[in-house]
Structures are given as C-alpha cells and as structure tokens.
Design a protein around this nucleic acid. Structure first.
Length: 610
DNA sequence: GGAAACTTCGATGCA
DNA sequence: ATGCATCGAAGT
C-alpha cells in the first residue's frame, strides 16, 4: 500500500502518548490488553477495566493554555513572508546563510530548547496558519520558533498551573528552513543536510512541538526527506496540535482555520459553556412531500405484497456496489494504490473518520448479481462482488486484522456496574455474548436460544444504549409497539443498573451542560435543557451515546497507540497500520512475521513474540 | 427560458 | 436509536 496511508496518523497519536497529552498523563483509568486462554485452547484478547487512583488536572484545561501559547506564532507569521526571510533580528533567520560556528550554536540551542512552535510555508507565502484549505500547494519551507529554556513565566492569568511557554523573547530563535527542491540544494547538498539535521534534532527532542495541522506537517516532512528518514524515527516526537485541542474542548464546532481559532478564543471574551447557535427557526414546519411519505413506509414491509419493492431494493444495493465500491474506489486510485485521508477532528464522539475513499465503510458482505442472459438455453451468469477482497497486500506481505469484541457493551457493563452484565464478560467459556444474554434475559436454557432470540437480544441491547423508542424498536424487530415497549420494560427490569446509568448520565448532563467520556473528553449538549421535547430527548440520547461510543473510541485509540508503540520499539517487526475501522485495526505485515505466531493467536501474543 | 453550479435529502454502506 | 462518508435525484 501507499506509504502515506495510515502510519502518519498513528504517529500523531503515539506522540500524544509520550507527551502525556491529551489523555495518558491525566487518565483516570488504565487499560491494558491481557490474554486469556479459552477452554478450546484458543487465545482471546481481554481488556480488563481497572480504575486508577490519581485524577490530575483535566487535560482539557491544559489544552486551553495551548491556545494562548500558539498565538505567538500567529503574531509572527507576517515576518515569514518571502523577501523578508533573509532579514535578521525578529524576522526568521534563513539557516542556509549561517556560518559553521553559528550552525553548531543553533544545534546546541535546539538541544536545550523547552519547546518548538512550527509551521510550513507554502509556495505563495501562506502558511498552515492562514490557509483555509488543505495544502495543495507545494511547500517552500518550514519556520521554527525555538523556545529557550530560560523563559520567564507567562503573563498573569495563564500561569495558574503546569508549564506554559512564554511569548517569544530575545533568547528565542526564529529560524527558516528551505525545503523546496531548488538549485541551491543541488549546488550545495550541505544545506539540505543541515536543514535536515535541524529538523531531525527537533523531532528527536522530547520537548513539545506545537503545530497546527501537525499530521500534514509530519507527513510532508516524511515525503520531502524520503530517503533520510523512516517513520519509526519520528514516532516518539511529542507533537501538540491546537486544532485537536480545540476539538477536545468542543467536538461539535469545527474549526476551519487557525485564524478562526484565534478569533474564537482570544479576540473576544471567552464565554463559558457551549455556544448555542441554534436559532428559533426549528419550529417552522417542514414541507413533507408525498414521495418521502411513501418511502417512510421503508419498501421493506411491502416486499411480500408485490414483487416490485424487492426489485427496487435489490437495484439500490447493486447500484451502491457499482457507484461506490467499483467506480468510486477506482476514482480514488493513484498509481494502483488508494490512500484515505484521515480526519482526527471530524466526529463529535471521538472516533476517527476517513474519506476519499471512506475505508471504514467498505461493504463487508459480498453481493451476488444474477445477470440475465436473454439467449435461449443459456444459463444466467452469477456475478459476486465482495469489495473487501479488492484489496490485496504487497508481495510477501499479508493483512492482519485485530478487533475488539463487543467493546461498547463492555463499556456499558463497566460504566453501569451492572452485575449481570459484568458477569457475562468474566466467564471465559461464554462463546456468544448475545446468545447468553438472550437466554439470561428470557430465562431459557442456552441450547434453546434460537437465532431470532439472539438477534432480538442484540437489537434490544443497542436500542437501549442509543435510546430508541418503542416505535423504532418495533419497526426494527417487526413487532407491534406494544410488544416492543414490553421488551424494553423487561430489559430495564432485568438490568436495572443500566437504566440507572442512563438516567444518571442525563441528569449529570442537565446539571453540567456536558457529558464526559471515560478518558475525560467532554461533549457539551446545549439542548439538554431545551423546551422543545424533540430537541431535548435527542440531546438525552446523544448524551448516553457519547459516553458509551466515545469511551469505546478512547479505548480503540489507546490500543492503536500501544500496538504502534510496540512495533516501533521492536527491531524486527515492520507491521504498518493500514486502517482503523472503529473497533478494528488493520495492518500490513511481512508474512514471515505472522508465521512465527500460531494462526489463531491474539494480537497481544503476536507482538510480544518479537 | 435554458444551462450549469450548488445544496439538500434519502438511501446505502460501516461501527 | 448514535454518528460517520458517498452517491444520485431533486430542488434552488
């Protein structure tokens, strides 16, 4: 697969791990992957939930300080315009103009630095801080502000706790590194070598590197210094990204640019709590067209009454296959590879998202298409399309997938402390959680649980988690709303603590205005106290859902970081992260590395073998 | 008035 | 019922 795919994002996340930001240092709980051997000899990856004692300052409090400190680069960006670069003093110093003595002085200063603030400069003179869109332009260079250790504390009001970085002072060095392929490099390769030395040293330092859109920054550097650097070498860099910090404060409002961030947090008084931009227009009646009314009646129910609905449904399925997974995927292909763009701040729940293509949404199950042959005596062709098999690993490599089992349910069990639910996960001999759940809840022996019962249990569980109403559940299960509400009722009765948990979560949200995930991420929900019943109940469902889904996302990211870290440390393992599908990690690894482990071993075993 | 660009919405896929 | 991306049709 393409080099760009996957690994860079992991690096960012691993950076956070080492810097203790935003979650590791402040975590309330710790999670580790443990192995259990089942009765049939198979290994299983188990994640016990343990609570940690220390609860230190909220990581989000600290991220706010980050905004203050990044503003200095913002103020300085005007001095980075082309033409002024050669100037000295408060303007960036072009390191290619330095003498050998000055060069070694600079390297020494970098070694001593307390922090770096950096951004890429593009061909047209804009930087990552004032360009709106993704960098389509080629990169001209990199500006780095090297913060000196001897800084005085920051201005009052922002020094309450922890380390902060002062605005630029005289001891700081603002340097410019040309990275574009130019005649200079060809004439004097020493310049390229030195600028690389500077960057490399910066990335090797364990002090924070502050960079807006850090992922783009690192990825671009890796591309520019393709031969000199391996992704493993920058894996331990400590990178802080204000965009992610802003997202941590409130995942709902997206920040289009750094300048918007500055405006939001500095150029007007910081308003506490969530900003509700909702206007009062929600009461306006929406025009419901007749055709949409018909579609609500979802064609599903009409299937048995007439052959047409089935044909329409089949058509839609096939059409999706062709348009998205064949044509769409082909459009994303470059030189035989596809490479998704990963967004770390694109969701309100804390998950990652991917686009061009959305690799997280590739069809799992194959679809068979009967191609009618209108020739007498000829049988119809059967074509099967299974989009996931379209992806093949490099020669000598193989894909390795590892996923959590029922992570959201485990989270729910832990958060609600529901004894019945917890018990389910503590018994290793349980083969299928929903079968067991169905037998437990209906009070029938496991052997008598039918497929339909299991399916019902599964749906009921998730409808409780997400707060579906009886109508929705009835629709889902194909039963009457009265029956559905009876199901919900009996579920609530059986797992009382789950119900208590949802009630408590909503109550907490009403009081504080936000909900918190297991690792301390917040989601403000302005509508939680709204008058409008629809808006309020939606916010209530979102509150419960955030805690469960968001906490699961926290764990998945941590697993991602930990596994990445163990590969980085390993001298032999080369497994590269290709994709993350919420609760699943997909690697591409050399085949022989997989062969050293038994086929059915857990991912924990696999990586510990190295 | 028609063409083209843009937005919205519902259906589909994933978890 | 939650929350992502993507496509085409329909509306603007």
């Amino acid at each position: 697969m393409d080099k760009i795919l996957g690994c860079q994002d992991t690096q960012i996340l691993s950076c956070y791990q080492d810097s203790g930001f935003p979650k590791w240092e402040y975590q309330e709980r710790s999670f580790s992957v443990e192995e259990k051997t089942l009765k049939d000899g198979k290994n299983k990856m188990v994640i016990p939930l343990k609570r940690k004692q220390n609860v230190s300052t909220s990581c989000l409090e600290k991220t706010r300080k980050l905004h203050v400190n990044t503003s200095m680069l913002h103020e300085r960006r005007y001095s980075c315009t082309p033409g002024q670069i050669k100037s000295s003093g408060k303007y960036p110093c072009d390191i290619s103009s330095l003498g050998s003595e000055e060069k070694s002085k600079l390297l020494a200063a970098i070694e001593q630095a307390a922090a770096f603030i950096t951004t890429m400069i593009f061909q047209d003179g804009s930087s990552q801080l004032n360009s709106e869109q993704a960098p389509t332009l080629s990169v001209k260079g990199v500006v780095v502000l090297v913060k000196n250790q001897t800084d005085q504390p920051c201005s009052p009001g922002h020094t309450s706790a922890g380390y902060t970085w002062n605005a630029a002072n005289e001891n700081d060095k603002l340097i410019y590194l040309k990275t574009e392929q130019s005649s200079l490099w060809e004439r004097e390769p020493a310049h390229k070598k030195f600028s690389w030395q500077v960057l490399f040293q910066m990335l090797q330092c364990k002090v924070p590197i502050i960079c807006f859109n850090a992922k783009d920054f690192l990825r671009t550097l890796l591309q520019i210094y393709d031969n000199e650097i391996s992704w493993k070498q920058v894996a331990n860099s400590v990178v802080l990204d204000p965009r992610i910090a802003a997202w941590l404060i409130n995942p709902s409002d997206t920040v289009p640019s750094f300048e918007c961030l500055i405006q939001k947090y500095f150029e007007k008084p910081f308003s506490k709590g969530a900003e509700n931009t909702d206007t009062g227009t929600s009461g306006t009646l929406r025009n419901v067209s007749v055709s949409s009314l018909f579609s609500i009646v979802w064609l599903n129910k009409l299937q048995d009454l007439h052959p047409l609905p089935k044909i329409i449904l089949e058509y839609r399925q096939v059409h999706k296959m062709k348009s998205t997974y064949v044509d769409g995927l082909r459009a994303c292909m470059k030189k035989g590879f596809i490479s998704s763009t990963w967004n770390q701040t694109g969701t309100v729940t804390g998950r990652l998202s991917a686009k061009h293509p959305n690799i997280q949404g590739i069809s799992k199950h194959p679809v068979t298409i009967a191609k009618k042959q209108y020739i007498k005596g000829k049988e119809e062709d059967i074509i099967t399309i299974s989009p996931r098999t379209l992806f093949v690993s490099k020669k000598g490599c193989t894909f390795l997938a590892a996923d959590f089992s029922h992570i959201e349910l485990r989270i729910l069990a832990d958060l609600s402390s529901e004894p019945e639910l917890l018990k389910l996960f503590q018994e290793p001999e349980i083969s299928d959680i929903f079968t067991t759940l169905a037998s437990q809840w209906k009070g029938i022996p496991i052997e008598q649980v039918k497929h339909a019962d299991r399916e019902q249990a599964k749906r009921i569980v998730y409808s409780v988690v997400y707060g579906a109403g009886k109508e929705r559940l009835a629709d889902c299960l194909g039963i009457t709303p009265v029956q559905a509400s009876q199901f919900i009722e009996s579920f609530m009765q059986k797992y009382k603590k789950v119900h208590e948990f949802t009630k408590k979560t909503i109550e907490q949200c009403r009081n504080k205005g936000y909900v918190v995930s297991i690792m301390g991420r917040k989601r403000p929900l302005a509508n939680i106290n709204a008058q409008d019943y629809k808006l309020r109940t939606q916010a209530e469902r979102q509150a419960v859902n955030f805690v469960v889904q968001g906490s699961a996302a926290d764990l998945c990211k941590m697993a991602m970081v930990k596994i990445f870290a163990s590969v980085v440390i390993s001298p032999t393992l080369t497994a590269r992260l290709i994709a993350q599908i919420h609760d699943e990690l997909l690697f591409e690894t050399l085949e022989w590395q997989l062969k050293i482990a038994p086929r059915n071993c857990s991912i924990g075993t696999f990586f510990s073998l190295a």
